[in-house]
Design a protein around this nucleic acid. Structure first.
Lengths: 218, 218
DNA sequence: GGTTGTGAATACATTCACAGCA
DNA sequence: TGCTGTGAATGTATTCACAACC
């Protein structure tokens, strides 16, 4: 009786969920190289992760391997894609079309993975209707309306930091459930919103902690 | 005798180091708002982190607060900056001047935090010596030479994924100790290299795991 | 022989709770 | 009284190690 969780099995740790996309990526590459089977040991070698961790991670979701042989890559990939919900397309909108926003909207890596930017917003009229392929830039007033109309579920925030929190609030009200935030702030959102932050400065600042000793030689 | 670690005190957990830059950022903002003192409870409120965690994190490095009052923001900031090694300038170079690379080199957020991009490399001759302020674009052959000459310690990788690992190898050989990798690969580097990856697709793919249930209503 | 899947053991991280101080 | 700093307790994540199986 120590377990007060509901019958919904063991909760999957968040770190595990964050590793699954890494597995998906390497498995896709292997498949392209016409490799069909791989062991947890080989995978671990490629990813610098212990084989035990890979097996344990996968075991939260099912039994995908064969003893003595390893994992069938195509099968495991299909399963992982379904688990992650990336076996289908997701509609996203982009807010902010400064240099960063334009780099994001032109980034060719999203759509092959099923993330489609179907709307873009900016309050700077000078940016409207510039050359962005099929997408028409709209005023930020229209976020709520367009998000609902087009049934968009992900918002990508690329506005200056002083506007970011209010954009996030708007997105939340509009019914979006996932936010990819590029603004260098500590964003606030209700618990049901899934937030991910992209913040190179924070990455650099935690990097130098480990670099400063080595450097004292110079 | 259970402790086989060296006398070098308790190892600081990596997660703690990654939170310190977040503290630095919010403390800087508070200081700009002319706030001088803050308690762990107030900080936790702003960052959605428990006060106990903040106090524990800080306690790895010293005793920065005053009982009954809280933390002096300016003092704590100075200490944290020194701990992280961001109380001085760091020289970085950028490799890859495609759309992403150009967005990075024009990003105004690095230099105020002391990260200065002092060299840029690309093998596409068409990109050389375009309008990039004081920086002259060099061929990638020159990475090793320039890194040593200018005493650069951080490499920012923004080349296509098929070139990324070889660029990383070159940077490592050149004596760089920190790498910020924007290429969507699982990079390999020796253990003494500090690597950080910026990978929005992985972020999105771990996001949808938590979004897919909610969405079944639609 | 080789490899998975998984309980048990260990290691790590967070939170509690309170003594000690301003 | 209010808040820090920190051991102890709890909660999470990783690794071990081996039975089960191909």
């Amino acid at each position: 009786m120590q377990n007060n969780k509901t019958i919904t099995q063991v909760e999957v740790p968040e770190v595990v969920v964050q590793r699954l996309p890494i597995y998906v990526r390497i498995l896709s590459q292997l498949l392209e190289s016409h490799i069909e089977i791989i062991s947890s040991h080989q995978l671990g070698e490629l990813l610098q992760i212990t084989p035990a961790q890979i097996r344990k991670d996968l075991s939260y979701f099912g039994r995908f391997g064969k003893q003595g042989r390893g994992y069938n890559i195509q099968f495991l990939l299909d399963e992982l894609r379904q688990i992650l919900g990336i076996d289908r397309a997701w509609k996203a909108c982009l807010i902010g079309l400064g240099r960063l926003g334009r780099a994001i909207i032109n980034y060719p890596g999203f759509s092959p993975e099923g993330f489609e930017i179907v709307a873009a917003f900016d309050n700077n009229v000078a940016q409207y209707n510039s050359n962005l392929g099929t997408i028409t830039v709209q005023s930020m007033d229209e976020i709520a309306h367009t998000v609902k109309e087009k049934n968009i579920s992900i918002g990508i925030v690329a506005v200056p930091s002083n506007q970011a929190q209010s954009v996030i609030d708007t997105l939340v009200e509009s019914g979006i459930t996932g936010i990819l935030n590029y603004a260098p702030i500590a964003p606030f959102a209700p618990k049901h919103i899934v937030m991910r932050n992209i913040d190179p400065v924070l990455s650099l600042q935690s990097m130098t902690f480990y670099m400063k000793e080595n450097d004292e030689i110079n």
